[in-house]
Design a binder for these strands. Structure first.
Lengths: 333, 333
DNA sequence: TTGTACGCGTTATCAG
DNA sequence: CTGATAACGCGTACAA
């Protein structure tokens, strides 16, 4: 059995209260007893029981993190950053991969409530808005609208769609396709699509959209992409994410299509991983670091002050574009 | 304020005990009161407070997961699998990225103890063995020796080193280099190095080892790799991980070295991500799924039966080799 | 079949 | 400066 407050008290020859005071730096204590208590704690290798403290009204300093999957480098990097920042602020995270699974997400939500987490960062919603409303806990959302009371942080998906399209155009592409998720209201890629469409219209080109479900296996996606490449006259493709873009580059290589001469490609996300191991990919870069910061600042603000009205419910962070070989920019220059 | 047991009891017109019994399916209760209690719970949207239950001796069903960083796809995929399996077993995970940081790892260890986690899965040790011994909690370790009482699960790193070397040899390479971490006792890559050395000796070739620290930035690693490639006569390179292998492939491309004709390369890990987006890379594949299973089975076993002696302290799981274009195998065949 | 009363480990209030 | 003692929300002997 792990030693408890009473054991320390007994060993130090004082009362529980005194030990508690020492631990929490509360009230007046003589230096002598303080030292005695410290020594007893060391000797017993004592660790206060968070559960008991939390039961008494103290916060758990636990934050629930709900994302689809950290198999995707984008989420992995976002979670990693969130973890780092929250650690520095004294919080621990409970990682919940919802995996597009309604039941799993609901179960996790319940568990998080049961565990008295201080707040939740959600980057997915398979669930109805009602379920999130009823949580009754500080929540911030990444890239998804959950409810009118839950602030949303995202990058400028719309502008990203515009930028990618414009870059392809300026690089010489005239038959620009959009490759991504099937249309689904509320999904952030919708705004990327909207940006693409608006820019295509502005350029007086024709819209072409090709859908591959995000949840499909890579080989199925590849198959679909090869079909697209061999049957169409596309000379530019706006992809909704970097991984899909990599599949396009791969398919082009296999089909003997020259990138960027005959086909120009852009991605979306700009993770460290992809930009390190695929510096040739041009992409819309999400400001991951800033996204993590804003998410956390908002959440901690809410935790500190649950009832204060937020000045702003939507935080849209600017994206940047990384030009590289896949649209013709010579890599390394 | 979140509703509590008493509120439900009041609403249902019964005592706390009865409600507790309904929740835990304990003892005899009439169907009528059971329904009444259920209804009250629904109406109040009641969630039992895990903290209070755990304080009473129930387990928290929390598991601490300590790994260096989920930015590395290998750890990301391992953590993801662990998370999935633990979720199915009714556990939640607290994610701790230790980031080669002694203090952070120590702090996390304390936090995990304070939070009364049921057990810990550790895949890193910056800390001394003593600190892990004193945790007094079920622990299992991935790929690192922590202490004589903590079971270790790993892939067959030694055989992996042998296999990779042999494969390069059979593909025609005669100047086979080893590229990896600087030697550091206890590190799993040491066994890979040992396998390489033994196999090189067996083949009567000369050993060549080149070190790049795992923690260095990719661009520094690249620089070092280019130096190696331009100054040496290497025609085969055993890399200690896939990401390093990708850098080698990249460097070779930039230097105009033909892979696999003039240089053959193998990696280590075989994550889904790398094998999907770099099918050309030949690599030693770790059985991630099995590793996750064994880790969890061992841990849950220990949790259920903390005092039982384990039959086995080291679990070494077999690796497989994926032949592909980077050693000459034509990809897709 | 149901209720009472106590304990889990800690903090906070109120006396000393 | 220090020490009893009552909470916190729940589970469970024991009693009814």
């Amino acid at each position: 059995m792990r030693p408890k407050l009473t054991d320390v008290a007994k060993k130090a020859g004082v009362s529980k209260t005194t030990v508690s005071r020492v631990i929490n730096n509360y009230g007046y204590i003589s230096e002598k007893t303080r030292q005695r208590v410290y020594r007893a704690m060391k000797e017993l290798n004592y660790q206060p029981n968070s559960l008991a403290r939390s039961l008494h009204g103290k916060s758990t300093h636990l934050i629930g993190i709900i994302f689809p999957s950290i198999m995707n480098p984008f989420y992995a990097e976002l979670v990693q950053r969130v973890e780092e920042k929250l650690f520095d602020a004294g919080y621990k995270i409970i990682l919940c991969n919802s995996a597009q699974n309604k039941k799993k997400e609901r179960d996790y939500l319940k568990m998080l409530i049961a565990n008295q987490v201080d707040g939740i960062i959600a980057g997915t919603h398979n669930l109805g808005i009602e379920e999130y409303k009823n949580v009754g806990l500080p929540i911030v959302s990444f890239d998804r609208y959950l409810s009118e009371t839950i602030p949303t942080v995202s990058c400028d998906n719309y502008q990203g769609g515009i930028t990618a399209t414009k870059e392809l155009y300026e690089a010489g592409a005239r038959h620009i396709y959009f490759l991504g998720n099937p249309h689904q209201s509320g999904n952030p890629t919708d705004k990327r699509l909207k940006g693409y469409c608006d820019e295509i219209d502005r350029l007086k080109l024709t819209r072409h959209t090709h859908t591959v479900s995000f949840t499909e296996s890579a080989s199925l996606k590849s198959f679909s992409i090869k079909e697209l490449l061999s049957k169409s006259v596309a000379d530019g493709i706006v992809c909704t994410d970097d991984l899909t873009a990599l599949l396009v580059l791969q398919a082009a290589r296999e089909l003997g299509i020259n990138v960027p001469n005959d086909l120009k490609v852009t991605g979306f996300d700009g993770t460290e991983l992809v930009s390190t191991y695929h510096p040739e990919l041009s992409t819309v870069v999400q400001p991951l670091e800033d996204i993590a910061s804003v998410l956390i600042n908002l959440l901690l603000e809410r935790i500190k002050n649950p009832d204060e009205k937020l000045k702003q419910m939507e935080y849209v962070l600017p994206v940047t574009f990384k030009r590289s070989a896949s649209i013709g920019q010579i890599f390394g220059q």
